[in-house]
Write a protein that binds this DNA or RNA. Structure first.
Length: 460
RNA sequence: GUGAUUGUAGCUCAGUUGGUUAGAGCGCCAGAUUGUGGCUCUGGAGGUCGCGGGUUCGAGUCCCGUCUUUCACCCCA
Protein backbone atom coordinates (compact mmCIF):
# COMPACT_ATOMS: atom_id res chain seq x y z
CA UNK A 1 0.00 0.00 0.00
CA UNK A 2 1.42 3.35 -1.00
CA UNK A 3 -0.99 5.22 1.26
CA UNK A 4 0.89 7.26 3.85
CA UNK A 5 0.40 6.25 7.48
CA UNK A 6 1.16 7.66 10.89
CA UNK A 7 3.63 6.23 13.38
CA UNK A 8 1.99 4.03 15.97
CA UNK A 9 0.31 5.92 18.77
CA UNK A 10 0.25 9.33 17.04
CA UNK A 11 -2.77 11.15 15.67
CA UNK A 12 -3.78 13.96 13.34
CA UNK A 13 -6.17 16.58 14.62
CA UNK A 14 -8.77 18.22 12.40
CA UNK A 15 -10.17 21.73 12.86
CA UNK A 16 -12.87 20.68 15.30
CA UNK A 17 -10.50 18.60 17.39
CA UNK A 18 -7.97 21.40 17.56
CA UNK A 19 -10.71 23.84 18.59
CA UNK A 20 -11.76 21.50 21.37
CA UNK A 21 -8.20 20.91 22.52
CA UNK A 22 -7.65 24.65 22.60
CA UNK A 23 -10.71 24.94 24.81
CA UNK A 24 -9.04 22.55 27.25
CA UNK A 25 -5.65 24.28 27.06
CA UNK A 26 -7.22 27.70 27.46
CA UNK A 27 -9.24 26.65 30.48
CA UNK A 28 -6.18 25.21 32.20
CA UNK A 29 -3.95 28.10 31.18
CA UNK A 30 -6.32 30.74 32.48
CA UNK A 31 -6.53 29.04 35.89
CA UNK A 32 -2.73 28.64 36.07
CA UNK A 33 -2.36 32.34 35.33
CA UNK A 34 -5.07 33.18 37.85
CA UNK A 35 -2.81 31.65 40.48
CA UNK A 36 0.26 33.51 39.32
CA UNK A 37 2.06 30.85 37.29
CA UNK A 38 4.12 31.95 34.29
CA UNK A 39 4.69 29.98 31.10
CA UNK A 40 7.96 28.49 29.95
CA UNK A 41 8.77 26.16 27.08
CA UNK A 42 11.57 23.65 26.63
CA UNK A 43 12.73 21.72 23.54
CA UNK A 44 11.00 18.47 22.50
CA UNK A 45 14.39 16.80 22.64
CA UNK A 46 16.80 16.67 25.52
CA UNK A 47 20.21 15.09 25.89
CA UNK A 48 19.68 11.46 26.72
CA UNK A 49 21.88 11.94 29.78
CA UNK A 50 19.30 14.40 31.11
CA UNK A 51 16.51 11.88 30.75
CA UNK A 52 17.92 8.47 31.57
CA UNK A 53 17.81 7.21 35.12
CA UNK A 54 15.07 9.60 36.13
CA UNK A 55 12.04 7.42 35.58
CA UNK A 56 13.25 4.01 36.77
CA UNK A 57 14.10 1.03 34.61
CA UNK A 58 10.58 0.86 33.18
CA UNK A 59 10.71 4.51 32.25
CA UNK A 60 14.07 4.23 30.52
CA UNK A 61 12.65 1.58 28.22
CA UNK A 62 9.90 3.97 27.18
CA UNK A 63 12.24 6.75 26.10
CA UNK A 64 12.30 7.59 22.42
CA UNK A 65 15.91 7.84 21.34
CA UNK A 66 17.01 9.98 18.42
CA UNK A 67 19.58 8.47 16.09
CA UNK A 68 22.69 10.60 15.78
CA UNK A 69 23.04 12.49 12.52
CA UNK A 70 25.94 12.32 10.10
CA UNK A 71 28.00 9.34 9.00
CA UNK A 72 28.62 8.19 12.56
CA UNK A 73 27.63 4.64 11.64
CA UNK A 74 30.66 4.18 9.43
CA UNK A 75 32.86 5.90 12.00
CA UNK A 76 31.54 3.63 14.70
CA UNK A 77 32.14 0.51 12.63
CA UNK A 78 35.77 1.53 12.11
CA UNK A 79 36.21 2.41 15.73
CA UNK A 80 35.06 -1.00 16.93
CA UNK A 81 36.65 -3.17 14.27
CA UNK A 82 38.16 -6.16 16.01
CA UNK A 83 36.57 -5.64 19.41
CA UNK A 84 34.63 -8.50 20.96
CA UNK A 85 31.04 -8.46 22.02
CA UNK A 86 32.12 -8.52 25.66
CA UNK A 87 34.30 -5.47 25.17
CA UNK A 88 31.45 -3.69 23.41
CA UNK A 89 29.04 -4.44 26.20
CA UNK A 90 31.41 -2.99 28.74
CA UNK A 91 31.43 0.35 26.94
CA UNK A 92 28.67 2.91 26.65
CA UNK A 93 27.93 2.00 23.04
CA UNK A 94 24.37 3.32 23.15
CA UNK A 95 25.54 6.91 23.31
CA UNK A 96 27.45 6.40 20.07
CA UNK A 97 24.14 5.72 18.33
CA UNK A 98 21.88 8.14 20.17
CA UNK A 99 22.72 11.03 22.42
CA UNK A 100 19.35 12.80 22.26
CA UNK A 101 15.86 11.69 23.23
CA UNK A 102 12.30 13.01 23.19
CA UNK A 103 11.12 14.31 26.53
CA UNK A 104 9.16 11.85 28.64
CA UNK A 105 7.49 14.37 30.90
CA UNK A 106 7.73 18.06 31.72
CA UNK A 107 9.06 17.79 35.26
CA UNK A 108 12.59 16.61 34.52
CA UNK A 109 13.12 19.19 31.76
CA UNK A 110 11.82 21.78 34.23
CA UNK A 111 14.38 20.67 36.82
CA UNK A 112 17.06 21.00 34.15
CA UNK A 113 15.71 24.44 33.27
CA UNK A 114 15.82 25.59 36.88
CA UNK A 115 19.42 24.45 37.27
CA UNK A 116 20.58 26.07 34.04
CA UNK A 117 18.78 29.35 34.75
CA UNK A 118 19.11 29.42 38.53
CA UNK A 119 20.66 32.88 38.44
CA UNK A 120 17.91 34.33 36.26
CA UNK A 121 14.80 33.10 37.99
CA UNK A 122 13.09 34.53 41.04
CA UNK A 123 12.46 32.06 43.86
CA UNK A 124 9.98 30.71 44.63
CA UNK A 125 9.61 30.09 40.90
CA UNK A 126 6.09 29.32 39.73
CA UNK A 127 5.95 28.12 36.17
CA UNK A 128 3.45 26.38 33.95
CA UNK A 129 4.15 24.47 30.77
CA UNK A 130 1.78 23.05 28.15
CA UNK A 131 3.67 20.89 25.69
CA UNK A 132 3.62 17.40 24.18
CA UNK A 133 5.57 14.54 25.73
CA UNK A 134 6.51 11.18 24.22
CA UNK A 135 6.50 7.62 25.49
CA UNK A 136 7.29 4.49 23.51
CA UNK A 137 4.44 2.66 25.20
CA UNK A 138 2.00 0.29 23.55
CA UNK A 139 -1.02 2.46 22.79
CA UNK A 140 -4.37 1.53 24.35
CA UNK A 141 -7.43 3.20 25.80
CA UNK A 142 -6.40 6.64 27.02
CA UNK A 143 -2.78 5.97 26.22
CA UNK A 144 -0.89 7.60 23.39
CA UNK A 145 2.72 7.84 22.34
CA UNK A 146 2.48 11.57 21.88
CA UNK A 147 0.28 13.46 24.30
CA UNK A 148 0.04 16.85 25.95
CA UNK A 149 0.78 17.49 29.56
CA UNK A 150 -0.19 20.72 31.26
CA UNK A 151 2.08 21.17 34.28
CA UNK A 152 2.25 23.77 37.00
CA UNK A 153 5.09 23.59 39.51
CA UNK A 154 6.57 25.78 42.16
CA UNK A 155 10.18 25.32 43.12
CA UNK A 156 11.98 26.84 46.09
CA UNK A 157 9.15 26.88 48.61
CA UNK A 158 8.39 24.33 51.35
CA UNK A 159 5.14 25.98 52.31
CA UNK A 160 2.03 23.84 52.33
CA UNK A 161 0.12 26.77 50.88
CA UNK A 162 1.37 25.46 47.55
CA UNK A 163 -0.10 22.01 48.15
CA UNK A 164 -3.33 23.63 49.24
CA UNK A 165 -3.61 25.81 46.17
CA UNK A 166 -2.97 22.91 43.82
CA UNK A 167 -6.08 21.23 45.19
CA UNK A 168 -7.97 24.41 44.39
CA UNK A 169 -6.46 24.61 40.92
CA UNK A 170 -7.59 21.07 40.14
CA UNK A 171 -11.01 21.84 41.53
CA UNK A 172 -11.39 25.10 39.62
CA UNK A 173 -10.23 23.73 36.27
CA UNK A 174 -12.62 20.78 36.30
CA UNK A 175 -15.43 22.93 37.64
CA UNK A 176 -14.95 25.26 34.67
CA UNK A 177 -15.04 22.25 32.37
CA UNK A 178 -18.27 21.13 34.00
CA UNK A 179 -16.68 17.80 34.83
CA UNK A 180 -17.11 15.92 38.10
CA UNK A 181 -13.82 14.49 39.36
CA UNK A 182 -12.36 12.92 42.47
CA UNK A 183 -9.16 14.50 43.76
CA UNK A 184 -7.23 11.91 45.73
CA UNK A 185 -4.61 13.04 48.19
CA UNK A 186 -1.96 11.15 50.12
CA UNK A 187 1.51 11.72 51.50
CA UNK A 188 4.57 9.66 50.78
CA UNK A 189 5.76 10.15 54.34
CA UNK A 190 2.70 8.27 55.54
CA UNK A 191 3.53 5.37 53.25
CA UNK A 192 7.16 5.40 54.39
CA UNK A 193 5.97 5.56 57.98
CA UNK A 194 3.80 2.54 57.42
CA UNK A 195 6.79 0.66 56.02
CA UNK A 196 8.78 1.59 59.11
CA UNK A 197 5.91 0.61 61.39
CA UNK A 198 6.03 -2.94 60.06
CA UNK A 199 9.82 -2.90 60.05
CA UNK A 200 10.08 -3.15 56.29
CA UNK A 201 11.53 0.22 55.36
CA UNK A 202 13.63 -1.36 52.63
CA UNK A 203 10.49 -2.76 51.02
CA UNK A 204 8.64 0.55 50.98
CA UNK A 205 8.49 0.57 47.19
CA UNK A 206 7.13 -2.96 46.89
CA UNK A 207 4.60 -2.05 49.55
CA UNK A 208 3.34 1.05 47.80
CA UNK A 209 3.20 -0.64 44.42
CA UNK A 210 1.05 -3.40 45.91
CA UNK A 211 -1.44 -1.29 47.81
CA UNK A 212 -1.75 1.13 44.91
CA UNK A 213 -3.58 -1.65 43.08
CA UNK A 214 -6.28 -2.00 45.75
CA UNK A 215 -9.13 -0.54 43.71
CA UNK A 216 -8.06 -2.59 40.72
CA UNK A 217 -7.41 -6.08 42.09
CA UNK A 218 -9.21 -5.88 45.45
CA UNK A 219 -8.11 -6.83 48.94
CA UNK A 220 -7.42 -10.47 48.05
CA UNK A 221 -5.28 -9.43 45.09
CA UNK A 222 -3.26 -7.08 47.23
CA UNK A 223 -2.79 -9.82 49.86
CA UNK A 224 -1.46 -12.13 47.15
CA UNK A 225 0.89 -9.47 45.90
CA UNK A 226 2.15 -8.73 49.41
CA UNK A 227 2.66 -12.40 50.23
CA UNK A 228 4.68 -12.78 47.05
CA UNK A 229 6.63 -9.69 48.07
CA UNK A 230 7.69 -11.54 51.22
CA UNK A 231 5.48 -9.76 53.73
CA UNK A 232 4.38 -11.75 56.79
CA UNK A 233 0.81 -12.28 57.97
CA UNK A 234 1.19 -9.85 60.86
CA UNK A 235 2.70 -7.23 58.57
CA UNK A 236 -0.17 -7.63 56.14
CA UNK A 237 -2.62 -7.35 59.02
CA UNK A 238 -1.18 -3.96 59.97
CA UNK A 239 -1.23 -2.81 56.36
CA UNK A 240 -4.87 -3.76 56.04
CA UNK A 241 -5.79 -1.77 59.14
CA UNK A 242 -4.51 1.21 57.21
CA UNK A 243 -6.59 0.97 54.14
CA UNK A 244 -9.65 -0.04 56.10
CA UNK A 245 -9.68 3.34 57.86
CA UNK A 246 -12.92 5.15 57.22
CA UNK A 247 -14.79 8.29 58.13
CA UNK A 248 -14.30 11.80 56.81
CA UNK A 249 -10.88 12.93 55.63
CA UNK A 250 -9.88 14.47 58.94
CA UNK A 251 -10.93 11.42 60.92
CA UNK A 252 -8.99 9.12 58.63
CA UNK A 253 -5.80 11.12 59.00
CA UNK A 254 -6.18 11.32 62.79
CA UNK A 255 -6.67 7.56 62.99
CA UNK A 256 -3.64 6.99 60.79
CA UNK A 257 -1.60 9.29 62.99
CA UNK A 258 -2.55 7.20 65.98
CA UNK A 259 -1.48 4.01 64.25
CA UNK A 260 1.82 5.63 63.32
CA UNK A 261 2.54 6.94 66.81
CA UNK A 262 6.24 7.08 67.50
CA UNK A 263 7.22 6.91 63.82
CA UNK A 264 8.27 10.51 63.28
CA UNK A 265 8.17 10.46 59.48
CA UNK A 266 4.68 8.99 59.46
CA UNK A 267 3.46 11.49 62.01
CA UNK A 268 4.88 14.31 59.95
CA UNK A 269 3.08 13.06 56.84
CA UNK A 270 -0.19 13.03 58.73
CA UNK A 271 0.45 16.53 60.08
CA UNK A 272 1.06 17.78 56.56
CA UNK A 273 -2.20 16.30 55.35
CA UNK A 274 -4.03 17.82 58.31
CA UNK A 275 -2.52 21.21 57.57
CA UNK A 276 -3.67 21.10 53.96
CA UNK A 277 -7.17 20.07 55.08
CA UNK A 278 -7.22 22.90 57.62
CA UNK A 279 -6.14 25.47 55.10
CA UNK A 280 -8.78 24.29 52.66
CA UNK A 281 -11.47 24.44 55.31
CA UNK A 282 -10.92 28.16 55.66
CA UNK A 283 -11.42 28.64 51.91
CA UNK A 284 -14.51 28.47 49.75
CA UNK A 285 -15.88 24.93 49.55
CA UNK A 286 -14.65 22.73 46.72
CA UNK A 287 -16.92 21.71 43.86
CA UNK A 288 -15.41 18.26 43.56
CA UNK A 289 -14.75 15.44 46.00
CA UNK A 290 -11.44 15.51 47.84
CA UNK A 291 -10.49 12.12 49.25
CA UNK A 292 -7.63 11.27 51.54
CA UNK A 293 -6.59 7.90 50.17
CA UNK A 294 -3.78 6.00 51.86
CA UNK A 295 -3.66 3.50 49.01
CA UNK A 296 -2.59 6.18 46.55
CA UNK A 297 1.09 5.61 45.75
CA UNK A 298 1.96 6.90 42.26
CA UNK A 299 4.87 5.48 40.42
CA UNK A 300 7.37 8.26 40.01
CA UNK A 301 9.89 7.52 42.67
CA UNK A 302 10.99 11.07 43.36
CA UNK A 303 7.86 12.11 45.26
CA UNK A 304 8.58 12.68 48.94
CA UNK A 305 5.59 14.53 50.39
CA UNK A 306 1.99 15.11 49.32
CA UNK A 307 0.86 13.25 46.23
CA UNK A 308 -2.19 13.92 44.08
CA UNK A 309 -4.19 12.00 41.59
CA UNK A 310 -7.36 12.99 39.77
CA UNK A 311 -9.82 10.56 38.22
CA UNK A 312 -13.04 11.39 36.41
CA UNK A 313 -16.21 10.72 38.39
CA UNK A 314 -18.17 10.27 35.16
CA UNK A 315 -17.52 8.46 31.90
CA UNK A 316 -15.74 5.13 31.56
CA UNK A 317 -12.08 6.14 31.64
CA UNK A 318 -10.70 4.76 34.87
CA UNK A 319 -7.12 5.90 34.55
CA UNK A 320 -5.97 9.18 36.02
CA UNK A 321 -6.45 12.45 34.18
CA UNK A 322 -4.06 14.32 36.42
CA UNK A 323 -1.41 13.76 39.03
CA UNK A 324 1.42 15.36 40.91
CA UNK A 325 3.15 15.81 44.18
CA UNK A 326 6.00 17.18 46.26
CA UNK A 327 9.58 16.25 45.52
CA UNK A 328 12.27 17.42 47.90
CA UNK A 329 15.55 18.04 46.19
CA UNK A 330 14.19 17.87 42.65
CA UNK A 331 17.24 19.57 41.20
CA UNK A 332 19.72 17.53 43.22
CA UNK A 333 20.18 15.12 40.31
CA UNK A 334 21.49 18.07 38.30
CA UNK A 335 23.79 19.28 41.05
CA UNK A 336 21.77 21.95 42.81
CA UNK A 337 20.86 20.73 46.29
CA UNK A 338 18.20 21.88 48.66
CA UNK A 339 15.52 23.09 46.25
CA UNK A 340 12.13 21.59 46.97
CA UNK A 341 9.42 21.47 44.34
CA UNK A 342 5.76 20.64 44.19
CA UNK A 343 3.62 20.41 41.09
CA UNK A 344 0.66 18.95 39.29
CA UNK A 345 -0.08 17.83 35.80
CA UNK A 346 -3.20 17.64 33.66
CA UNK A 347 -3.42 14.93 31.00
CA UNK A 348 -5.08 16.95 28.24
CA UNK A 349 -5.72 14.03 25.89
CA UNK A 350 -7.45 11.94 28.53
CA UNK A 351 -9.48 14.94 29.62
CA UNK A 352 -10.47 15.33 25.97
CA UNK A 353 -11.63 11.72 25.85
CA UNK A 354 -13.75 12.14 28.98
CA UNK A 355 -15.38 15.39 27.84
CA UNK A 356 -15.99 13.86 24.43
CA UNK A 357 -17.62 10.76 25.90
CA UNK A 358 -19.83 12.73 28.26
CA UNK A 359 -20.77 15.21 25.53
CA UNK A 360 -19.67 18.23 27.52
CA UNK A 361 -17.81 20.25 24.95
CA UNK A 362 -19.48 23.66 24.76
CA UNK A 363 -20.79 24.90 21.42
CA UNK A 364 -18.39 27.80 21.69
CA UNK A 365 -15.53 25.37 21.23
CA UNK A 366 -16.41 25.45 17.55
CA UNK A 367 -14.76 28.16 15.58
CA UNK A 368 -14.81 29.47 12.05
CA UNK A 369 -16.43 32.21 10.03
CA UNK A 370 -19.74 33.61 11.28
CA UNK A 371 -20.77 34.92 7.91
CA UNK A 372 -20.42 33.56 4.38
CA UNK A 373 -20.98 36.01 1.51
CA UNK A 374 -22.31 34.30 -1.60
CA UNK A 375 -20.58 34.94 -4.87
CA UNK A 376 -22.64 35.75 -7.97
CA UNK A 377 -19.63 36.88 -9.96
CA UNK A 378 -19.15 40.15 -11.84
CA UNK A 379 -20.14 43.33 -10.03
CA UNK A 380 -21.97 41.33 -7.39
CA UNK A 381 -18.72 39.64 -6.50
CA UNK A 382 -16.98 42.95 -5.90
CA UNK A 383 -19.88 44.21 -3.77
CA UNK A 384 -19.83 41.00 -1.71
CA UNK A 385 -16.09 41.23 -1.23
CA UNK A 386 -16.40 44.82 -0.04
CA UNK A 387 -19.09 43.76 2.41
CA UNK A 388 -16.83 40.99 3.71
CA UNK A 389 -14.07 43.52 4.31
CA UNK A 390 -16.49 45.74 6.21
CA UNK A 391 -17.43 42.82 8.42
CA UNK A 392 -13.81 41.91 9.07
CA UNK A 393 -13.00 45.53 9.82
CA UNK A 394 -15.63 45.25 12.55
CA UNK A 395 -14.09 42.05 13.91
CA UNK A 396 -16.76 39.78 12.52
CA UNK A 397 -15.13 36.77 10.95
CA UNK A 398 -16.40 36.43 7.41
CA UNK A 399 -15.48 34.81 4.15
CA UNK A 400 -16.37 35.25 0.51
CA UNK A 401 -17.09 32.10 -1.46
CA UNK A 402 -14.13 32.17 -3.82
CA UNK A 403 -15.96 31.58 -7.07
CA UNK A 404 -19.32 32.19 -8.64
CA UNK A 405 -20.58 28.66 -8.13
CA UNK A 406 -24.11 27.44 -8.13
CA UNK A 407 -26.02 28.84 -5.19
CA UNK A 408 -26.97 25.45 -3.82
CA UNK A 409 -23.30 24.60 -3.65
CA UNK A 410 -22.47 27.77 -1.76
CA UNK A 411 -25.26 27.19 0.74
CA UNK A 412 -24.17 23.64 1.25
CA UNK A 413 -20.67 24.89 1.93
CA UNK A 414 -22.02 27.15 4.69
CA UNK A 415 -24.08 24.29 6.00
CA UNK A 416 -21.16 21.85 6.07
CA UNK A 417 -18.89 24.35 7.79
CA UNK A 418 -21.61 25.33 10.26
CA UNK A 419 -21.35 28.98 9.26
CA UNK A 420 -24.43 30.43 10.96
CA UNK A 421 -25.20 33.30 8.54
CA UNK A 422 -25.15 33.72 4.79
CA UNK A 423 -24.99 37.16 3.26
CA UNK A 424 -26.56 37.53 -0.17
CA UNK A 425 -25.72 40.53 -2.34
CA UNK A 426 -27.01 40.29 -5.88
CA UNK A 427 -28.27 42.75 -8.42
CA UNK A 428 -31.54 43.32 -6.58
CA UNK A 429 -29.75 44.10 -3.31
CA UNK A 430 -27.24 46.39 -4.97
CA UNK A 431 -30.01 48.39 -6.62
CA UNK A 432 -31.83 48.72 -3.31
CA UNK A 433 -28.60 49.44 -1.43
CA UNK A 434 -29.42 46.58 0.90
CA UNK A 435 -28.25 43.08 1.72
CA UNK A 436 -30.10 39.85 2.41
CA UNK A 437 -29.07 37.94 5.51
CA UNK A 438 -30.10 34.36 6.01
CA UNK A 439 -29.97 32.58 9.34
CA UNK A 440 -28.90 29.06 8.49
CA UNK A 441 -30.28 27.58 11.66
CA UNK A 442 -33.80 28.91 11.47
CA UNK A 443 -33.91 29.32 7.71
CA UNK A 444 -35.28 32.85 8.10
CA UNK A 445 -33.93 35.57 5.89
CA UNK A 446 -34.46 39.29 5.83
CA UNK A 447 -33.58 42.24 3.67
CA UNK A 448 -31.57 44.71 5.72
CA UNK A 449 -28.51 46.93 5.56
CA UNK A 450 -24.90 45.96 6.12
CA UNK A 451 -24.67 48.47 8.97
CA UNK A 452 -27.49 46.68 10.71
CA UNK A 453 -25.80 43.30 10.23
CA UNK A 454 -22.63 44.67 11.79
CA UNK A 455 -24.55 46.20 14.66
CA UNK A 456 -26.35 42.93 15.33
CA UNK A 457 -23.27 40.74 15.31
CA UNK A 458 -21.11 43.00 17.40
CA UNK A 459 -23.36 42.24 20.31
CA UNK A 460 -21.82 38.78 20.58
C1' G B 1 8.40 -5.92 26.84
C1' U B 2 4.17 -10.23 27.52
C1' G B 3 -0.73 -12.05 25.84
C1' A B 4 -4.94 -11.42 22.79
C1' U B 5 -7.50 -8.79 18.76
C1' U B 6 -8.48 -6.02 14.11
C1' G B 7 -7.70 -4.71 8.79
C1' U B 8 -12.85 -5.26 2.45
C1' A B 9 -15.23 1.90 -1.14
C1' G B 10 -14.11 8.50 2.02
C1' C B 11 -16.96 6.28 6.79
C1' U B 12 -19.65 2.01 9.29
C1' C B 13 -19.84 -2.84 7.97
C1' A B 14 -21.82 -7.67 4.94
C1' G B 15 -19.28 -11.35 2.00
C1' U B 16 -21.67 -19.08 2.75
C1' U B 17 -17.17 -25.66 3.21
C1' G B 18 -12.02 -21.77 -1.12
C1' G B 19 -15.49 -21.16 -7.00
C1' U B 20 -17.87 -16.33 -12.47
C1' U B 21 -17.59 -9.50 -12.97
C1' A B 22 -16.60 -8.29 -4.35
C1' G B 23 -21.92 -5.91 -2.04
C1' A B 24 -25.13 -2.57 1.33
C1' G B 25 -26.08 1.85 4.14
C1' C B 26 -24.19 6.62 4.87
C1' G B 27 -21.14 10.22 2.47
C1' C B 28 -19.44 12.27 -2.39
C1' C B 29 -20.61 14.04 -7.59
C1' A B 30 -24.53 15.22 -11.25
C1' G B 31 -29.67 16.06 -12.33
C1' A B 32 -35.05 16.96 -10.86
C1' U B 33 -34.58 22.90 -8.86
C1' U B 34 -30.03 28.85 -13.55
C1' G B 35 -31.43 33.50 -6.29
C1' U B 36 -31.25 29.33 -1.48
C1' G B 37 -28.50 24.37 2.44
C1' G B 38 -31.14 20.46 5.54
C1' C B 39 -36.12 16.65 3.28
C1' U B 40 -37.42 13.57 -1.14
C1' C B 41 -36.59 11.17 -5.93
C1' U B 42 -33.33 9.63 -10.23
C1' G B 43 -28.59 8.59 -12.05
C1' G B 44 -23.13 8.27 -11.50
C1' A B 45 -18.14 7.83 -9.80
C1' G B 46 -15.36 5.28 -6.33
C1' G B 47 -11.88 -1.19 -4.29
C1' U B 48 -4.12 -3.77 -5.78
C1' C B 49 -9.90 -6.95 -0.16
C1' G B 50 -3.31 -3.52 4.87
C1' C B 51 1.52 -5.25 2.69
C1' G B 52 4.82 -9.48 1.25
C1' G B 53 5.28 -14.57 0.53
C1' G B 54 3.12 -19.66 0.44
C1' U B 55 -0.75 -23.73 -0.46
C1' U B 56 -4.29 -24.51 -4.63
C1' C B 57 -6.70 -25.54 -11.22
C1' G B 58 -8.67 -21.29 -8.42
C1' A B 59 -7.60 -17.18 -2.28
C1' G B 60 -11.26 -11.42 0.33
C1' U B 61 -11.78 -16.59 2.49
C1' C B 62 -6.55 -21.35 4.33
C1' C B 63 -1.00 -21.05 6.14
C1' C B 64 3.55 -18.04 7.40
C1' G B 65 5.80 -13.30 8.00
C1' U B 66 5.21 -8.09 8.52
C1' C B 67 2.77 -3.49 9.47
C1' U B 68 -1.60 -1.43 11.61
C1' U B 69 -6.07 -1.08 15.04
C1' U B 70 -8.18 -2.15 19.57
C1' C B 71 -7.81 -4.40 24.52
C1' A B 72 -5.51 -6.47 28.96
C1' C B 73 -0.79 -6.97 31.84
C1' C B 74 3.51 -3.93 33.22
C1' C B 75 3.76 1.13 33.90
C1' C B 76 1.54 5.71 33.46
C1' A B 77 -1.34 11.33 31.90
Amino acid sequence: MSQPTLPKGTRDFGPQEVARRNYIFNTIRSVFELYGYQPIETPVMENLSTLTGKYGDEGDKLLFRILNSGDFLDETKKKFRGTTVEQLEAKDTASLLAEKGLRYDLTVPFARFVVMHRNDIVLPFKRYQIQPVFRADRPQKGRYREFFQCDADVVGSDSLWNETEFVQIYDTVFYRMNLQVIIRLNNRKVLNGLAQLIAAAEKATALTVAIDKLDKIGIQGVRQELIQGGFSESQIHTIERFFKLHGDNRTKVLQARELLQGISEGEKGCDELLEVLDKLSSAMPLHNKLEIDFTLARGLSYYTGCIYEVVADEGTLKSSIGGGGRYDDLTGIFGVKGLSGVGISFGADRIYDVIEETGKFPESALQGARVLAVNFGGEDETAAWQAVQQLRHNKISAELYPQAAKLAKQFKYADDKKIPYVLIIGEAERNAKSVTLKNMQTGDQEKTTLAHVIHLHNKY
